Computed example of a mutant assay.
Amino acid sequence: MAALKEELKTGKGFASYGAIVEWLKQEHGLEIEYGTVYSLARYTLGAKLKVPRPQSHKQDEKLVSEFKKNSVLS
Protein backbone atom coordinates (compact mmCIF):
# COMPACT_ATOMS: atom_id res chain seq x y z
CA MET A 1 0.00 0.00 0.00
CA ALA A 2 2.89 2.35 0.76
CA ALA A 3 4.46 1.62 -2.63
CA LEU A 4 1.17 2.37 -4.39
CA LYS A 5 0.81 5.62 -2.46
CA GLU A 6 4.31 6.70 -3.49
CA GLU A 7 3.69 5.72 -7.12
CA LEU A 8 0.48 7.77 -7.18
CA LYS A 9 2.37 10.78 -5.81
CA THR A 10 4.89 10.74 -8.66
CA GLY A 11 4.04 12.89 -11.64
CA LYS A 12 3.70 10.08 -14.16
CA GLY A 13 0.70 8.41 -12.50
CA PHE A 14 -1.53 5.81 -14.10
CA ALA A 15 -3.84 6.05 -17.09
CA SER A 16 -6.48 3.76 -15.57
CA TYR A 17 -7.28 1.68 -12.53
CA GLY A 18 -6.66 -1.37 -14.73
CA ALA A 19 -3.10 -0.11 -15.17
CA ILE A 20 -2.74 -0.07 -11.39
CA VAL A 21 -3.94 -3.69 -11.27
CA GLU A 22 -1.30 -4.63 -13.86
CA TRP A 23 1.40 -2.64 -12.03
CA LEU A 24 0.63 -4.40 -8.75
CA LYS A 25 0.79 -7.76 -10.52
CA GLN A 26 4.12 -7.05 -12.27
CA GLU A 27 5.95 -5.12 -9.56
CA HIS A 28 4.71 -6.82 -6.41
CA GLY A 29 3.19 -10.12 -7.55
CA LEU A 30 -0.22 -9.19 -6.14
CA GLU A 31 -3.39 -10.21 -7.93
CA ILE A 32 -6.05 -7.81 -6.68
CA GLU A 33 -9.45 -7.34 -8.30
CA TYR A 34 -10.27 -4.12 -10.14
CA GLY A 35 -13.01 -3.07 -7.69
CA THR A 36 -10.71 -3.49 -4.73
CA VAL A 37 -7.97 -1.43 -6.39
CA TYR A 38 -10.49 1.24 -7.36
CA SER A 39 -11.87 1.64 -3.84
CA LEU A 40 -8.40 1.49 -2.29
CA ALA A 41 -6.93 4.13 -4.59
CA ARG A 42 -9.99 6.37 -4.81
CA TYR A 43 -11.37 6.32 -1.29
CA THR A 44 -8.61 5.09 1.02
CA LEU A 45 -5.71 6.92 -0.62
CA GLY A 46 -7.84 9.78 -1.98
CA ALA A 47 -6.28 9.61 -5.44
CA LYS A 48 -7.93 10.62 -8.69
CA LEU A 49 -6.37 9.52 -11.94
CA LYS A 50 -5.44 12.51 -14.03
CA VAL A 51 -5.79 11.77 -17.73
CA PRO A 52 -5.84 14.59 -20.27
CA ARG A 53 -8.90 14.94 -22.42
CA PRO A 54 -8.41 13.91 -26.03
CA GLN A 55 -7.87 16.64 -28.60
CA SER A 56 -8.70 16.56 -32.27
CA HIS A 57 -5.75 15.99 -34.59
CA LYS A 58 -7.43 18.46 -36.97
CA GLN A 59 -7.08 21.30 -34.47
CA ASP A 60 -4.97 24.25 -35.65
CA GLU A 61 -2.45 25.22 -32.95
CA LYS A 62 -2.18 28.81 -34.21
CA LEU A 63 -5.93 29.35 -33.93
CA VAL A 64 -5.99 27.85 -30.43
CA SER A 65 -3.18 30.08 -29.18
CA GLU A 66 -4.78 33.13 -30.83
CA PHE A 67 -8.08 32.32 -29.13
CA LYS A 68 -6.38 31.99 -25.76
CA LYS A 69 -4.58 35.35 -26.19
CA ASN A 70 -7.75 37.21 -27.18
CA SER A 71 -10.10 35.50 -24.75
CA VAL A 72 -12.07 37.77 -22.44
CA LEU A 73 -11.47 35.42 -19.50
CA SER A 74 -7.70 35.70 -19.53
Rank of each mutant, 00 (worst) to 15 (best):
V64S: 14
A2L: 10
E33Q: 02
G29L: 11
L45W: 11
L40S: 03
V72D: 09
L45K: 07
S16E: 08
G13M: 03
A19E: 11
I20S: 08
A2D: 04
Y17K: 09
A2N: 15
S65P: 09
S56V: 05
E66C: 05
A41N: 05
Y38W: 02
Y17F: 14
R53G: 08
P52K: 12
E31A: 07
T44A: 00
E33I: 00
L24E: 14
H57L: 06
L30N: 05
V64L: 15
F67I: 15
R42Y: 03
L45V: 09
L73Y: 13
G18L: 03
Q55T: 12
Y17M: 06
L63S: 06
S65Y: 15
E31Q: 09
V64W: 13
A3T: 14
R42W: 06
P52C: 15
W23C: 10
G46I: 00
Y17E: 05
S39A: 11
K12C: 12
G13Y: 06
A15N: 12
P52G: 11
E22D: 03
S16L: 11
Q59N: 09
Y38I: 00
E22M: 05
K5F: 04
Q55E: 11
T10P: 08
G29I: 10
P52S: 10
Q55P: 01
L73I: 06
S74M: 08
H28K: 08
V64T: 13
A41H: 02
A3R: 09
A47Q: 05
K58I: 03
Y43L: 09
G13K: 02
L4P: 08
L8E: 04
L40M: 08
K9P: 10
K25I: 13
L45Y: 13
E7G: 14
G11T: 10
G11P: 07
H57S: 14
E7T: 11
K69W: 00
K50E: 00
I32F: 05
P52Q: 12
H57R: 09
G29H: 15
E33A: 04
I20M: 14
K12F: 02
L24F: 08
W23N: 09
P54G: 13
Y43P: 00
A19R: 08
A15W: 03
S74I: 05
M1R: 10
H28T: 01
A15K: 04
D60R: 15
L73C: 07
L40E: 02
E27A: 15
R42H: 10
M1P: 10
E61W: 13
H28D: 02
Q55I: 12
V37F: 10
A41C: 06
Q26K: 14
K48Y: 07
E33Y: 02
L49V: 03
I20P: 10
A47Y: 06
G46D: 04
Y34K: 06
E33T: 08
E31P: 04
